[in-house]
Amino acid sequence: MMEIRFHGRGGQGAVTAAEVLAVAAFKDGKYAQAFGKFGPERRGAPVQSFTRISDEPIRIRQEVYEPDCVVVLDASLMKVVDVREGLKEGGILIINTGEEVAGAWAVDATQIAMDVIGKPIVNTAMLGAFNKASECAVTLDSLTEAIKERFPGKIGELNSKAIVKASEGCACCEV
């Protein structure tokens, strides 16, 4: 079973990202679970969401405390939240940033979202980065299909493009 934790700010779509990832994994023929850690829903406040992906039915009902992968939608969170907390040895850290971070995967999702969608909505682009960094724990086909289902029409198309572009543009910086 693979456990993923998303860090974002209220309004950035961290919960939607976790849900779309679960739907995509299901399309790949896997079992999946997704949920948010809900707080007072304030825009800008640090939020978390979680996805589990497994070949077997998922029998666990708790937050993800020791993730295999952490996805950070907003690098400014790293000043206030320990995003590496509980991350497994050899686990994957993916950060939305234009800079290189030692031991992490970096993708400038904000730039990609501005270029492709015209808005700084980065949650879907980060799923593309997850596809690359996780060595295809979820397929791009399923991700783009899931996002088009969630947001039919032009919004889905643009987000789908952002997913593909972020997968291509995601790179790992060695320690």
Binding site: F26, Y31, A32, Q33, A34, F35, G36, F38, P57, I58
Partner: peptide, 10 residues
């Protein structure tokens, strides 16, 4: 609430 109502499951 939330544990089931707001969780995606198969």
């Amino acid at each position: 609430g939330f544990f089931l109502s707001h969780t995606y499951d198969v």
